[in-house]
Amino acid sequence: MSSSPQSTVPATHLEFHAPGQGRGLRDVFANQFLLKRIVDKEIQVRYRASVLGLVWSYIKPAIQFAVYFVAMGVFLGLNKGLPNYAIYMFSGIVVMNLFTEVFGNSARIIVGNGDLIKKIYLPRELFPVSSLWVAWIHFFPQVAILLVVDLIVGWHPTLMQLVAFVVGFVIVSVFALALGLVFGTANVFFRDSENFVDLINMVVTWLSPVLYMWVLVANTLPHWAVTLYKFNPLTTAVELFHDAFWASTVNGEIPYEVWHVMPHLFSSWTPIALVLSFGTLLVGDLLFRHFEGKFAQEL
């Protein structure tokens, strides 16, 4: 008896991945359409049944600025000792508003979208990154207001000061997203993480030279504490914004050593802040990728 010929099927090499796991933040670039849909959803949810909508992007920082300006500028007299203190303060406030919004929302967004995550699989990193996009939508109107005021008082930036704005923007965006990935992962397993996020956002404005000048820290704290203070990437980001939006408006009015931002800002502290921010982002991405396969089951 002759055996029937056996059909041969060409071997194929397929890559298998653990269920619920992807390539980390690299998946965001390959899913731009989904990212835009999530951003649209977050905006719609936030302003559902709202009369003013995105106008709140102007109202909230305006009220925040007014409160801080009266408390620090008028009551404590900082407005008298520092030229264009309003610009100095608002330059730092826009940095902190960007950080707190990205950090706070990205740390909560996984739990907040638990029902969707349990139903279908899509790259989980899209959710924290969408928080970054939404925060940018609120950030740039504030920068526009700052620019208008700057132009009124005679802002004349150099190329390096424009670069300072871009680099400061990158530092705060990356650092906030990095911490959001870390605490967003922790929040899935330990809901107490939200309390730590609230605490950090509550004190972070006071841990950087937003309402006061960095020289007050240098003249008060011991050297090791000042060094630790400068290692905070947000301190560098705030000082870069001061250099970009405030420094050129007071140059010549008071001595350079009094008004100028931190020494070695560009040569030392900016590279350090960039390394720390992107290093934290790498750690956050690895941590997020390691645990995201368990998100649906924990939620």
Rank of each mutant, 00 (worst) to 15 (best):
H138E: 09
G92K: 02
I120C: 04
V197P: 00
I145W: 00
P141S: 05
Y121I: 02
V149E: 05
L132M: 15
P222I: 06
I110K: 02
L132P: 06
A164G: 12
V167F: 10
G114H: 01
W224V: 06
P123T: 11
V149Y: 10
K118W: 08
V167T: 13
V134G: 04
E125K: 08
V148M: 11
W136G: 04
I200C: 03
F140G: 04
S193K: 00
V174I: 15
N105M: 09
A176C: 07
D192T: 00
S91R: 09
V153T: 02
S131H: 05
N219K: 15
E101I: 00
G112M: 05
V111C: 02
V129Q: 10
P128S: 08
A107P: 04
H223L: 07
I152L: 11
S131D: 03
T100R: 10
L122M: 14
L151I: 13
Q142S: 14
Q161C: 10
T205G: 15
T100F: 02
F103D: 04
L181P: 07
L179D: 07
I109E: 07
L147M: 13
E194Q: 13
V172K: 12
Y212C: 10
V143P: 03
V204A: 06
V204K: 08
P128Y: 06
I145L: 14
L132I: 05
T220K: 14
I93V: 12
L98Y: 07
A107C: 08
W206P: 07
F90C: 03
T185C: 05
Y121A: 08
N105P: 01
L98H: 10
V174P: 11
R191Y: 04
A225D: 11
Y212I: 06
V153M: 01
M213H: 08
L126P: 05
F103K: 06
L132W: 09
V149K: 04
L151K: 12
H156Q: 15
L162K: 14
G180E: 09
F196C: 02
R108F: 09
V215W: 14
P123G: 08
D192K: 00
Q142C: 03
A86R: 01
N195S: 12
A178R: 14
S106L: 08
N187L: 01
W214G: 01
F90S: 01
I152R: 03
F139M: 11
L162F: 13
W206N: 10
V134C: 06
F183N: 03
V203A: 14
I110F: 09
L216Q: 15
L216E: 11
L146E: 13
A176E: 08
S173I: 14
V167D: 05
L146C: 12
D115R: 11
A144W: 05
A86F: 01
N201Q: 14
A86T: 02
V188M: 13
A144Q: 04
V210F: 06
V217F: 09
N113F: 11
L177K: 13
V153K: 00
D198F: 12
V129K: 10
A225P: 07
L116Q: 13
P128N: 07
A107D: 04
V170M: 15
F99L: 07
V111N: 05
G154L: 00
S193N: 01
V226E: 11
V174L: 13
